[in-house]
Design a protein around this nucleic acid. Sequence first.
DNA 1: GTCTATATTTGGATAGAC
DNA 2: GTCTATCCAAATATAGAC
Lengths: 205, 205
Amino acid sequence: MPENTKLIKHHGTKEKILKESFILFSEHGYTGTSVRKIASKVGIRESALYNHFKNKEEIFLEVAKDIFSSPFSFENENIHELALKGKMFLHKYTMQYKLLTFDKNNESMFRILLIELLQNKELREQFMNEFHNKNIKLLSEGFFVMMQNSLIRSSDPMTMSYEFLSTLFYIRLQITLMRFDSLSTTHLSTQFEKHVDFFWESIKI
Amino acid sequence: MPENTKLIKHHGTKEKILKESFILFSEHGYTGTSVRKIASKVGIRESALYNHFKNKEEIFLEVAKDIFSSPFSFENENIHELALKGKMFLHKYTMQYKLLTFDKNNESMFRILLIELLQNKELREQFMNEFHNKNIKLLSEGFFVMMQNSLIRSSDPMTMSYEFLSTLFYIRLQITLMRFDSLSTTHLSTQFEKHVDFFWESIKI
DNA sequence: GTCTATATTTGGATAGAC
DNA sequence: GTCTATCCAAATATAGAC
């Protein structure tokens, strides 16, 4: 089993660098994180770091690559079938969104995204594509099916998706900010369910 | 008119420093903006800069102070009376929000806010207070009045405000990002009106 | 692969002449 | 109030020994 060896490999230095960088970037952003601090956290000298990465930017790019690699949502499931369940679809979708909001890893990614949103054009584009367009497309499909089956009132599916998604994003943003200051989010976290309830009341026939 | 003299004063160095800093901060954030660059833009040496401000942070604080000083919304108007007009209230409110979104000055402030949101605790708190709480409170009053007068369906005014505001914020965020890349926002800007239409359909009786 | 040592650049800030 | 000159610290990065 020589193949496995590489995977199980007791966390190599390179992996540790990525891990610590990820944490630091998510707390202080790119410019706010120095190579010094990374090396220090890893437990090696700065010079040793350059054995694994060409430079600081290369570290960031490798970290950033993962941000959108963990795909959200029901890619493998049958949207059409799910959408027929009406409110259940919105609820399930929202619960996945909520899960990601509170997932430690995903939370850090979201923070990096927020911090670098205006500094990094690539992240900005990925935000638009992965965070926005992809979700809008999926939701639109769902709403379209619901309309066809007279489960909800007739309207533009895109606009409806936009309305639905924007609130999810806003809740997530607020929760992320609160958690960054270690404030309680119990009250805010129920907002997800409230959103589904309110929205369903707004569109159901 | 000795009082006026100070106000009209042909833009002194201090004012120019604040102006250029404001622009630079809104493009590159706090750490991304060096004292060197500020001085260069102003057209003086760095040392001369310290004649007007104690240090870089003091410049930023003075710039940041203005971010929330320009109050949004109908502070002097009668919410009760406006709310009685139902959809008209939401429309007017949204148009003010839209105006700020496209106002150059306000746009820069919004960008600074975004960039520093996770780096600066004070800005974070101000965001929650001025951008969120204040708006939620005002909208809640409006929705409450509408409910009392049976213009809209009964629901929790706070939740309803949250739903309404979150979409406004999301539209603004997207527009700000697009404009940062000099992309066209004509399509997105109509989203404001669509939002009002959709939302009113969702709550009207 | 990691270390010490060092080069180089950039950034924030001060001293003192004019 | 602005300039020149300078200092100091921090940050990225490289060279070469082990």
